[in-house]
Design a protein around this nucleic acid. Structure first.
Length: 1048
RNA sequence: GGGCGAUUAGCUCAGUCGGUUAGAGCGCUUCUCUGAUAAGGAAGAGGUCCCUGGUUCGAAUCCAGGAUCGCCCA
């Protein structure tokens, strides 16, 4: 007999198998062919969010990459063309910092000294340092993406597209330069974007001084007297030397007050201080004396003595060192009088603009005071805090100083505490298109849904202008040229620049681009490029067009692939890439660039701890891949939980999934191949359910259809978790019910069984192809050697009509088997011993179901006969309970009375009545009510002396009486079992025929003779003799049997 | 401090429209079955469904407050 399939190794190493499959994919260009095959089909567009290859990829990157992979694979199989252009993010501060570290730099000036050209060359080199690792891992995990044609944000063509976007935004009047107070890193001397503030580790708990400072008024005015002191509060004493004014809420009630039992610096107990009434107790304590009350507006214009005299009030203008009115003042904390240092706070800066105060900033970009701050000149501001406080104390200006623990932002790369600092920066006026951003967001489907109007929507609601510029080196240069007169030119293409300057640009990066100048068309003076580069998020957010070099080139290609159907990244990209994609496409095209987005959660270690290098609990992907394989890791990510909930990464769980699912599938497949080969069964076509005789075959095909329906429905909704679990449930049914119940038929070479199982396995392979692409490709190709070159070239299965009646029937039959097996377990009579009968309690549709599948139930329970009891009360005592679900809505508050009335009924009578189709009357609150079969639940208590298991209204009882015939048959089965064991230990193949010789005690030999043909058939014995007395003895039921087997 | 989410068995996770005995897998104990399986089946042990209050005839489920954890923002 020929062997239609390659034999299957039950000990197959999956990682090894995956390597073979990978080689085959590469050799046969399977990925390319899956895309080519759909040429001309409807596009389904995926955008790759570009990673940076200057670090080694971690297990969280695997998570993102497999989720980026699964839905494009699925959509390809459902008939779409899904191109997958890779991408690399290459610019930015992290790259610069890595190079700085490598070169041993510790300040920005080092870079200038070293030379920008050399520095950027290093960056260019560094950014692909781990490209090999990334490419290898990407391939190894089965992420199909075209890395050969990946877009790279450092390419001149990419940069030119970004320039086009910026010029377009400039032309709309939405790109501007302005002073703003921004988070500034004094170490890197760079502004941090709000995205960067959101990086892990940015906010850290620190202890800062919390000081209450007294500012004596210059002269009695309004409600204040000479000697009164305005009380302010701050946690940044280093901003006090630049105090420009104070602000109060015009509507809030303020008081003059004295004393109180909270700690006071000596000399301040008797001082009359001014603060918001609501904060008196919190600041001064119990027992403070309140001298006067007045609204904040009455304080406007009153002059006071500043905490430090370094900078005269006049330097700030007329309103310097006076009380101003501010709408941002609250009585939530502090004193209700807000210290205002214009250069170092956002509210402060706005207030200064409003009142026309002059910005005075004596803090240098490196975070030290300049010469205007006397003795403190040259000191780092945060380190001057304590001395400044002591200074105030010495001059009797302090009410109290204490420690204050709060979360303070730090530079996410270098860990330096940030300073809020007024700096000129370039901004995109995104706040002006806020409503359009919200409208764009409406068109996006988010997974999980709550992100849309929660985290992301709230963020859009509070949109502030995008701080675009960075005072750095390795990035897309801001394409703005400006002359000495301040005439600004935005450049949107290299051609335009060349036309203006007559110079050809060889490299769009700094410093080369900085050397290109041209005469200003308004004044003729030389226009030079501003020094800044742009936020890298603008790079990556431009990828929809920049990856094609649109609009300078391939405009059509871009238009045909915009917007994306699908993007997927970690949840922390909400304010990163998801925002920059949405913002840029809304600015340029007034629509979102993506329709569906899946967010992925964080991966924690098995103890729920964040993975970090310092903890040493980082999982290296290769370890997992080498041990369990990519399919196992993929399956874990897809099905262990909803991906946005985050993972507790557990090798145990992965190993369990291999055993529970991948091996189960592999073994089922191995079973098919073994028997198909043994019987020479060539791959049969998919069976027609209507032509199948066996209920089991039709049942499993119907289950398959149900599974296909679920999987398609869930995958269409980006829910790989539920889809995967549905496939797993089907594979379990296939293996542990269909195959288990059908073993005999495969043994006998039943054509229907082979056709059915093979069809199920092929369909499962096709459904699993997006999930576990390696394993199932091997399965598919061996099961369908004349089919497609790969399962990935197949169409996704389509659901055939179902037989729901049969699915229901099988469910009932399996329930009956479960009950029967439980009864078996209780009876202590082992399953090999046949019993005369099982009595099943079931009526109507359920009874019909079990009768239909009686063979299955009998065989599973090893009973000769199945009998039915029409009702539970034939086997046990009946209980009647109210069905709350049905009766609750009908009776409402009276439910307890109904329950009591039902309890008072005669259970047997009720059961009889319901069985005969009558209703049962009860009286509640003096009114008659009729209860039908749906209103009552009947259950049973088992009766003494029966072996019975019940569940709800079902029960199965076993008749335990054994007669001689049954006992002999039980013995015969024991004998078969013993002979099989002997065959196995003799190393015989499953299809070897034997000559069987038995000897031993008469009871066993009698049983063997009585069932000789059965024994011979089961053990493939061509001859049976009873002269085996000298063969190996085994014990059966306490008696001895000698068994000799010989291959013939 | 604010927004979003989570909290169910020792572990990993389900739990539909609110319905009265809250489930599965793993692990543990005991038994059983087996010529595909690293498996299958049965029984047992294991629960303050985070807490408190409310709505309701009835709450793991709905509402409010709180706790803890995570993410995001300040």
């Amino acid at each position: 007999m020929s062997a239609p399939h390659s034999p299957v190794d039950p000990q197959q190493s999956f990682p090894k198998l995956e390597e073979q499959v990978l080689a085959r994919w590469k050799e046969e260009r399977i990925f390319e062919r899956t895309v080519e095959r759909r040429a001309g089909a409807r596009r389904w567009v995926f955008y790759e969010g570009p990673p940076t290859a200057n670090g080694r990829p971690g297990v969280h990157h695997v998570l993102a990459r497999v989720f980026k992979d699964i839905f494009p694979r699925y959509r390809t199989m459902t008939g779409h063309q899904v191109e997958r252009k890779g991408g690399w993010d290459t610019h930015g501060l992290p790259v610069e910092l890595a190079v700085e570290a490598e070169l041993g730099f510790d300040k920005k000036e080092d870079i200038e000294e070293y030379g920008i050209a050399r520095f950027n060359a290093k960056c260019r080199e560094s950014v692909f340092r781990y490209l090999e690792d990334w490419s290898r891992l990407t391939e190894r995990i089965g992420y199909w993406v075209d890395l050969d044609d990946a877009y790279r944000t450092l390419d001149d063509s990419y940069i030119e597209s970004v320039w086009w976007a910026l010029k377009t935004i400039f032309d709309k009047g939405l790109l501007y330069e302005s002073y703003k107070v921004v988070p500034h890193c004094p170490r890197d001397q760079v502004t941090l974007s709000s995205h960067e503030l959101g990086q892990p580790g940015a906010y850290r708990d620190v202890i800062d001084p919390s000081v209450y400072v007294r500012l004596p008024v210059r002269a009695a005015a309004g409600p204040l007297r000479d000697g009164d002191e305005l009380l302010i509060w701050t946690t940044t004493p280093w901003t006090l030397p630049t105090n420009a004014a104070v602000a109060v809420d015009p509507e809030l009630t303020y008081v003059r007050a004295r004393g109180g039992d909270k700690p006071h610096e000596s000399g301040s107990e008797t001082a009359v201080v001014v603060l918001a009434e609501a904060l008196v107790e919190r600041v001064l304590g119990e027992g403070a004396e309140i001298l006067d009350r007045f609204p904040g507006r009455e304080l406007e214009g009153i002059g006071y003595q500043p905490p430090f005299d370094f900078i005269p009030g006049s330097a700030y203008g007329e309103r310097g060192h006076t009380v101003l009115l501010g709408d941002f003042v609250t009585a939530d904390d502090g004193t209700g009088i807000v210290h205002t240092a214009i250069a170092f706070g956002e509210d402060d800066f706005r207030l200064g603009e409003e009142y026309g105060l002059t910005v005075v900033n004596p803090v240098k970009p490196n975070g030290t005071y300049d010469e205007r701050i006397g003795d403190y000149a040259g000191r780092f501001v945060k380190e001057a805090d304590r001395d400044l406080v002591d200074d105030l104390r010495g001059r009797g200006r302090l009410l109290r100083a204490e420690d204050y623990e709060h979360a303070y932002p730090h530079c996410w790369r270098c860990g330096t505490p940030l300073l809020y600092y007024a700096k000129p920066s370039w901004y995109i006026r995104t706040s002006e298109i806020r409503d359009r951003l919200l409208a764009s967001n409406e068109s996006v489907t988010w997974y999980p849904p709550h992100v849309k109007h929660g985290r992301f929507g709230n963020w859009l609601e509070g949109n502030v202008d995008w701080a675009l510029s960075r005072e750095r080196y390795w990035g897309t240069p801001l394409p703005i040229w400006r002359c000495v007169h301040g005439h600004v030119h935005a450049i949107g293409s290299f051609a335009d620049l060349e036309a203006r300057s007559g110079q050809k640009l060889d490299d769009a990066h700094r410093p080369f681009v900085d050397e290109v100048t041209f005469p200003c068309e308004q004044c003729g003076e030389t226009a030079r490029r501003v020094p800044e580069v742009i936020d890298v998020w603008f790079d990556s957010g431009s990828m929809p067009f920049a990856q094609w070099h649109a609009p300078h080139e391939h405009e059509e290609r871009f238009r045909a692939r915009f917007p994306a159907d699908y993007v997927c990244e970690a949840l922390d990209q909400t304010r990163g890439w998801f925002y920059s994609l949405l913002a840029i496409s809304t600015l340029l095209f007034d629509q979102s660039s993506f329709k569906n987005v899946v967010c992925l959660g964080l991966i924690l270690d098995a103890d729920g701890q964040k993975m970090s290098k310092s903890r040493g609990n980082v999982v290296v992907p290769d370890e997992v891949l080498d041990r369990f394989g990519a399919d196992a890791l993929r399956w874990y990510f897809f099905t262990s939980k909803q991906p946005w909930d985050g993972y507790r990464f557990s090798l145990e769980t992965i190993s369990e999934m291999v055993r529970q699912f991948l091996l189960q599938l592999w073994n089922t497949y191995g079973f098919y191949v073994m028997y198909a080969n043994a019987n020479g069964v060539a791959p049969p076509p998919a069976p027609d359910p209507a032509a199948l005789e066996s209920d089991l075959d039709r049942w499993v095909l119907s289950r398959l259809s149900a599974t296909v329906e679920t999987v398609r429905e869930r995958m269409d909704d980006y829910d790989a978790t539920t889809a995967g679990r549905a496939i797993q449930a089907f594979v379990d049914d296939l293996s542990n019910w269909y195959v288990r119940r059908s073993r005999r038929r495969f043994w006998d070479g039943d054509a229907d069984a082979f056709a059915t199982l093979r069809h199920c396995l092929v369909s499962v392979a096709q459904m699993l192809a997006p999930f576990t692409p390696f394993l199932v490709d091997e399965i598919y190709r061996n099961l369908d050697p004349d089919g497609e070159a790969s399962v990935h070239l197949c169409d996704f299965p389509v659901a055939a009509p179902r037989d729901e009646e049969l699915e229901f029937a099988m469910g009932v039959a399996r329930e009956a088997v479960t009950l029967g097996l439980a009864a078996r377990g209780q009876s202590k009579i082992k399953l090999r011993q046949p019993l005369r009968a099982a009595v099943v309690v079931a009526t109507g549709r359920e009874r019909a179901a079990i009768e239909r599948l009686a063979d299955v139930v009998r065989d599973e329970l090893n009973v000769k006969e199945l009998r039915f009891a029409a009702a539970a009360d034939e086997l046990g005592r009946v209980e009647v309970k109210p069905n709350y679900r049905a009766l609750g809505p009908r009776f409402g508050k009276s439910m307890p009375l109904v329950a009591a009335a039902v309890a008072a009924l005669d259970p047997a009578g009720v059961a009889r009545a319901l069985r005969e189709g009558r209703t049962v009357g009860i009286v509640v609150d003096g009114a008659d009510h009729e209860l039908g079969p749906d209103d009552l639940i009947t259950a049973m208590q088992p009766l003494e002396g029966y072996q019975l298991e019940r569940e709800g209204s079902h029960a199965v009882a076993l008749e335990l009486t054994l007669d001689e015939e049954l006992l002999r048959e039980g013995k015969a089965r024991e004998i078969v079992h013993a002979i099989q064991a002997a065959r196995k230990s003799a190393g015989l193949d499953i299809s070897d025929r034997i000559a069987l010789a038995l000897g031993g005690e008469a009871t066993l030999l009698d049983a063997a003779r009585a069932h000789e043909s059965y024994i011979a058939r089961e053990t493939l014995a061509t001859t049976v003799s009873y002269d085996g007395a000298d063969a190996e003895p085994v014990a059966i039921d306490g008696a001895s049997l000698n068994i000799a087997v010989a291959r013939v």
